[in-house]
Every structure is written in C-alpha cells, then in structure tokens.
Nucleic acid binder design. Sequence first.
DNA 1: AATGAATGAGAGTTCATTCAT
DNA 2: CATGAATGAACTCTCATTCAT
Lengths: 191, 191, 191, 191
Amino acid sequence: MVTEPGEEKRLKILDATLKLISEKGFHGTAMSKVAKEAGVSAGIIYHYFENKDELILELYKAQKRKMADAIYEGLDPAQPLSAQVRYIVEKCFRYHLTQPGITSFMQQFGTSPYFTCQVETEMRVHTKGITDIMDRAQKEMIIKDLPGPVFGTLIIDVASSLAQKQAVGLIELTDELVDDIVDAVWAAIRY
Amino acid sequence: MVTEPGEEKRLKILDATLKLISEKGFHGTAMSKVAKEAGVSAGIIYHYFENKDELILELYKAQKRKMADAIYEGLDPAQPLSAQVRYIVEKCFRYHLTQPGITSFMQQFGTSPYFTCQVETEMRVHTKGITDIMDRAQKEMIIKDLPGPVFGTLIIDVASSLAQKQAVGLIELTDELVDDIVDAVWAAIRY
Amino acid sequence: MVTEPGEEKRLKILDATLKLISEKGFHGTAMSKVAKEAGVSAGIIYHYFENKDELILELYKAQKRKMADAIYEGLDPAQPLSAQVRYIVEKCFRYHLTQPGITSFMQQFGTSPYFTCQVETEMRVHTKGITDIMDRAQKEMIIKDLPGPVFGTLIIDVASSLAQKQAVGLIELTDELVDDIVDAVWAAIRY
Amino acid sequence: MVTEPGEEKRLKILDATLKLISEKGFHGTAMSKVAKEAGVSAGIIYHYFENKDELILELYKAQKRKMADAIYEGLDPAQPLSAQVRYIVEKCFRYHLTQPGITSFMQQFGTSPYFTCQVETEMRVHTKGITDIMDRAQKEMIIKDLPGPVFGTLIIDVASSLAQKQAVGLIELTDELVDDIVDAVWAAIRY
DNA sequence: AATGAATGAGAGTTCATTCAT
DNA sequence: CATGAATGAACTCTCATTCAT
C-alpha cells in the first residue's frame, strides 16, 4: 500500500477543492459542492480538515510543495549555474502554463487575505532547493543582487499571470512566445 | 457643483467597497457592511448598482480608468519614446506601491472568476493613451516584439505583486530597490 | 401606539422561544422552529438578537423582571412587614403555579451553564423592591438571619420545583395544599 | 472480580457523561466527547446504551439510586424518628454540597423534558427506605401532613438549589450556615 | 467486544436582495 | 430618493448514529 485509505480520501477532497476554486473562486466554492465533487459526504471533510480555511491553507501548502518539487526535479547540478537558473525559469513557466487550475488557485490564494507573511515563511523549507541555487547564482554575479521575493515575482508571478491571461483567452502562448518571454525574464534577472 | 449629490453617494459606495474588499476580500465583504462603511442604507446601493457583481465590476472599471489616467498623466510627448516607456514603467510602480488598497482589490479581481476577456477588452479604450506609446515603441524597435498583455504582465502585474508582498511584510521596497526593479523590468522589455 | 412595530415582533420571538423551550428544552428548540412558531422568517431573529444564547439570555432577563414586578405588584406598604413577606411568598407560589411555561423555562435556565453569578447580579436591580422588604424584615427580626439567595431558594425555587412537579403530574396542588406549603415555607424563614 | 470488564467500561461512560453534562449541559455534551472523556471509542457506547437519551436516563437512575443509598446509609433505626428525619435532611444537604457535579446533572435532568412522572415513579423502589421513614414520621405527627413530593422539594430541591448557587459563587455555604438552613427546613416540615 | 471513519440530516447563522414606508 | 426591516435560500459546521473492519 502506497497510500492509506484515509489519505486517499483526503487527496480527493483537496483535488475537488482545487478544481472548484479554480473554476468558481473561493466564494463560489461551497463545502457541500466540494463534498459532491470529491464523492464524499459533507461531514467527513471536517474529519480531515478543521474547517474551510484550514482546508484551503492545506491545499495551498501542498500545491506550493508540489510546484517546488516539480521545478526542482530534473535540475542537473553538473550544469553551470546560469543554465540551472534558466532551467528553473523555463520549468516554472511550463508548470503554470500546463496547469491552469493550479495556477488559478495559487493566484487567488496569493491575492487574498489568506496570504500572510507567516504562511509564506513556513513554505521556505520546501523551496530551499531552488532558493539555494538562486542565492549561489547571486553570489557568483550571474543574476542581479535583488531580494529573493523579487525573483519570485519576476518568475512565478509573471508565469502565473500569463497563464491566467491565456486561460481567459487574452493571449495565446505558443512555444516560441514562451521562449521569448523566458528570454525577457532572463534579461530582467541576469546580472 | 462638479459632482451631483447622487454621484457623490455613488462614489462613497465605491470607495467603501474598495476599502472592504482590499481588507477582507470578496467573501468578507457583505453588502450591509459596504452600506455601513459608506454611511448609506443597504437598499440604496441597488439604486446605483444592479447587484453586487455589477458593483464590483463598476469598481474595477473605474479603478482601471483611474490608474490609466494617473499613469498617462505627466507624460511628455516631446520626450524620446524610450524615456516615455520608462516613465510609464516607473509611474506604474509608484502608483501601486503608494496605493496598496487599490492594488489589493485589482489583484483580487484579476485572479477571480470576475476577470474575463470581455471586461478586459472593454477597458482598452481607456488604456489607449498608454498602449499607443507601447505600440509605437515596439514599431521603432525600442521594446521587444511581444503581445500587449505580456507587457501588461511585466509591468502592471509585477508592480502589483511586489506591492502586495510589501503590504504583507515580505519585502521592503526602498526607493533604490524600486529603481533597481524598474531597471530589471526595462531590461526585460527593451529590444 | 403603545408598542412600536419592531418591538411587537421582538416580543413574538421571545414568546415563541419561551413556549418552545418550556415544552422541548433548549436542545429541542431550533431557531428555525422559533421562527415558525413566532410567524417570522428565520433570518429576522438575528436582527433582534445577536445569537441564540443572547436570545435566551434576554428572555431570562425579561421574565425575571416580569416576575419581580408581578410579585411586587399589589404589595401594601401600610401593612406590617410580616404580612408583606407572607404576601410575597404567596404571590410567588401563585405566579409559578399559574404559569408553568415560564416556570419551566426559568428552571431550565437556572440549572444550565447559562446561569452565572454575573447574570444574577445584574438582575438585582429589578428585584430590589422585594429584597428591600426582606432586608427590613430581617433587621426587624421577623425573618431569620440568612443570606438573600437562601430566601430566594426557599421561596422561588421551592415554588418552581413544585409547579414543575405539578406540571408532570407528580402532585396536585390544590388551594389548601398551597396554603399549607406557604405556611411551611413561612415556618422555615420566620425568626 | 467485583465488576466485570464490560461493567467497568459502562461505568466509565456514565462517569464521563456526568462530568460533561454537569460542566457543559446537555447541549454541550456530544457523544464523541463522552467517548473521548471516557477513553473509549464512539461506537462502543451504543453497545452499552441504546442511544443518547437512554444513556442520560440510565445515568439519572443510577445517580438517584446512589443518592438514596448514600442518604439512607448510616441511619440508625434505634434512634427516635425525629432524629432520623433530621439525619436524612442533613445527609441530603451534605451529599449535594460535596458533589456539585452530580447535583448539576440531577437538576438539569429534573428540569428538562427528560423528567417525567413515569421515570420518577419507577425510582420509588429505590427511595423506599427513606420514604418509609417519612411516612412513619408523618403518621406519628412528627412531620406535617404533606404529600411526599413536597418533602422531596423542601429537602432535595432546596439542597441542590443551594449547592448550585454555591457552585456559581452566589453564596458561600459554611458549616454553620448549612446548620441554620437545615434548621429552617426542619422548621418547615416538622409538625 | 471494539474501533473510528463515514453518513446525512439538521443546527445556527449570514447575506444578497426586496419593498412597504 | 432613501430607509432598514424582512425574507429565505444557502452557507459552514456539528453530531447522533451506523457499520465495515
């Protein structure tokens, strides 16, 4: 058994929440709808999560972790740092563009009153793999001397903003365009 | 009289909505609270706005217009285009950083299901002053050949993302840092 | 107009609450049932009372006041103190015996976690007319030197206990029996 | 073994119920909390008790029995009847004053819709030891000619009322005060 | 005998919206 | 124009009870 039976249900609830919030927003996502979407009873959600806020917070943390892992995955430490940073930027863009649901949720969370300094600080443990590379690139004067969150904005927030604009039909992000944007972001952050 | 008495009340309602949503989010902003904050009765809101969604939409449009006007204001057509574009970028940053309430609302709107291609297209009339400059700068190969919304992301969304991170205490944006970031953004968009 | 229209609805809600709690208990009295019994919508209750606890508390205070007034009413200050005390005891018994609903509610409240020292202390203002007589009777050595709450128990709690036993059919309180019990209580408290 | 293993668990459930209801009331006492307090699973309660109402009823009966036994215990049949009655009154007061949890539960039960003529009639078997003495005292004209439940009220309900007032801090029942109250009650019931 | 995850009805409460005044 | 009491559907959350294990 890889996942216990309880864990599986927990995941179904998180998935349903992600789907609904990305489609209907926080306000449009009732717990009863989450239950229905997840195929569970309304009451059981409270067995796994203290309340709606906690459920949303847990979802955010899980997705942030997952994103960090996905971006870090495939990184070749043997490569020069500049290549590693570019890899991160590109991976970040691909990640968001291919998963509009996750992007939508993360953006809503990040712009809502849920988003606090504390939560973000807690997440640093999981993004350490990436921030370490950025820090080293900074010391080696490969990228600019800017605070970490600024890189976060230039990379993650730009990627997710664009992903959402694509989702609503404001732009079409072809592979070439993505390449150009990655180049632009690279130009922004390189020393 | 510059504003009619009715118009004044309308504005008070919009201001109250902006304040509450920026602080408490869509969910935490009840119409009754908007009324109380605006110092009007609950019923009268429906005289000025069809319903809550329409109120929020109107607020978004009004703020978008205001922002476009504020950024366009002071632009010197006599200056070289590159200077004008830099001016826009800088103005945009200052605008968001000094008005966290507006930024918070705009971001919440922009990441919510309210945000649609249609609304955004409607707004183009008001941002024309700015987009025209960007278009001309593009033709003169001062800035990259990227779709308009990409510039929108690199400038507006980056500015508002950073403004919000500052609001929750994740970064402190000193004047020098803002200059550096404007430089970085300029590096991203320049040809 | 003796009562404003809003006050009238408030009273209907309080009456409905009294009736239902006396019949079904706190647990068996849902807000929706109160609304139905009062002939109002579920939501409006929260316009008059902050929440269920507050509604119940208000009901208690109102009934306590009403009871104190009813018992005090008709008291002849010209009569000797001993007659006045006996009058109080008797009135108290009659009051509870003729209004089993009120008695049931008051008893449930008084034995529940709602009942606190603070609430009871607040009520002293309204029972002052009665407690003053008791105090004077005590000074004149007409009744025993016992703390006020002990008299409260011997008179009010005994009366309500008996009223409830009658309500469930455990005793039948004829007029003569009530007279005998009043005599017994008088024997308990007299000097 | 005095108690079988099953009986022991049954008692733990009853004890937990008593504790929680005395502290939080019927409403604030969920079966899951009873289970946790008793250190058993939620499901097993239904092996010992048909449902929550039955559990509460059983608890009441058990406590009523226990109280009757405790009060009867130590009674010396060789003593004159008047002394025996006084002994009962005093024991009753001490019992309630020293066990506020039991008193609180019994009072809540006695004032709730659980309390019926039938339940009370059933309990007569267990209080027979006491009621017999009262009956004999009545025949010998030591105490007044009042129905049994009236004595119940004057003794038990007065005792529990006072115990609760002490529990919430409305009075402090010193030994001397208790003696005085017992005297008062005796004055009420004696012929 | 024992567990505790699961159910689902129903609780308290909120809130967008209406409408008599 | 303006009020705010009133509505009632919908929300979050709880809990007595069941049942597969």
